Amino acid sequence: MTLLRLILEELKAIVADKAIAVTLFGGVLFYALLYPLPYLNQVPTEQALVVVDLDNTSLSRELIRHADASPKIRVARAAGSVAEAQHYIASGDFHGLLVIPAGFKRDLLLGKGATLSYGGDASYFLVYSALVEGLVTAGMDAARSVQLLGMLSRGESFAGASLSLLPMHLNAVPAYNPGLGYTPYVVPGLFLLILHQTLLIGTGILGAGQWRKAGYWQQVSSLELLIGRIAAFGLIYAALGAFYMGWCYHWYGVSVQAGLGDIAAFIVPFYLATAAAGVAASCLFRRRDMPTQVMLLASMPILFVSGFVWPLSLIPEPLVMAAQTIPAVPAIFGMLKLNQLGTGFDGVFSEWLTLWLLALVYLALAWWGLVVRQREVNQLSPPKQG
């Protein structure tokens, strides 16, 4: 059997197998829509706030206006006490609380400290972050207003007092996530993980289903079968990867800094290492359902140890080192630096070498596993000649 015919046989086996076809094509397309769906609004805005104003002065009302003017906060209701405000928040219609203490304006004008109390629904981290950011900004604006009045009362000019309060103006321009949204942040790494897991599952199901019956995989050597299988899956994932890193990146507004050549050079060892790892893993399974169960259970741990949703400094060092043996981990870290941060290929050279090393190791393991499995199949059912 020629190599081209072997690749065609592998492609036919992949497409004809419903479980593999659904995982590869249906899963990749489905997850492209499902995972980013909760974050399409990018950043939380206009979060409903309950205000308890125990001071009821012009300054406290100005603070409330500043809070309401923030794009992250909407002052939705006033309450007469903290207990009443807690009742509103418990209803689920409000997410934050601002308490202005009695004597707020008096204490500030006398130069004493005044404490504003903030509260929020911390079960939603992004909502809580938006509330705190908006309230802190409003509080700082109110404090500057009082400081400005104090300076003017001491005879300072308005220009001098303003310059003293704001000696410099910060113009922050996000370089890699212009909208400061969650989707452009999480999608690039998550899509690579989806490609990694579906490729492992697909190769695992195909191999696990062949070790108890005869077929074309008996008519070729282990090395030829390995090359043909990786080539077949590589052709499919070249198209799926182009869909993810092309159309999906454009659709979700993901920043793209790298050229096509750099992306292709980096993604090749990732596909090679992942496909080889999947073939090697398939030699461990005798049931077709096991690869899906094992790989899905491993998805969440891989997501965390990859370092883009959870700081690596908070993960035990031995676990971080062990995670480098999973192709998705150096691939995600390197692709984020290359494609989103624009570091250039020199900046991801270590991750690129790691992927090639993993590819060599998993290719050797996959070849050895195929040799063992083919020998078992041939003992049960000798291959037919021709």
Rank of each mutant, 00 (worst) to 15 (best):
L357H: 10
A322Q: 07
E84F: 09
N56E: 03
Q147F: 03
C283W: 05
V75E: 06
L284A: 06
P36C: 03
F308Q: 05
P330R: 09
A275W: 15
D141R: 13
G80V: 13
F266P: 07
G103V: 03
V309C: 05
G134V: 02
R287E: 00
G204T: 04
I194H: 06
H196Q: 02
V377M: 08
L358R: 15
E351T: 08
S164A: 14
K213F: 04
D346A: 05
A76G: 11
L360Y: 04
N56A: 12
L190H: 06
L180R: 11
P178G: 08
C283Y: 05
P318Q: 10
S129L: 04
L3I: 13
G307Q: 00
D53E: 07
G179W: 02
L180Y: 03
F25M: 10
A275V: 14
G347T: 06
V371E: 15
I20N: 06
F285Q: 08
G202C: 02
D346C: 00
D55L: 09
L357F: 11
V186F: 11
L296Q: 13
L163D: 07
S117C: 03
L225H: 11
I302W: 08
A19C: 01
L365K: 15
G278C: 13
P330D: 00
Y216I: 08
L240R: 09
Y271A: 14
L131R: 03
L6V: 11
M300F: 06
E376P: 13
L225E: 09
L6D: 06
S91C: 03
R212Y: 03
L370G: 13
Y271Q: 14
V329P: 15
W368A: 15
A130D: 00
A13E: 12
L40V: 13
S81P: 12
I100E: 03
Q374G: 13
K18M: 01
L338N: 09
Q374S: 11
E224I: 07
F30S: 14
G26P: 09
W352V: 05
G241R: 03
G386P: 05
Q218M: 02
L272N: 12
A175W: 13
E46A: 12
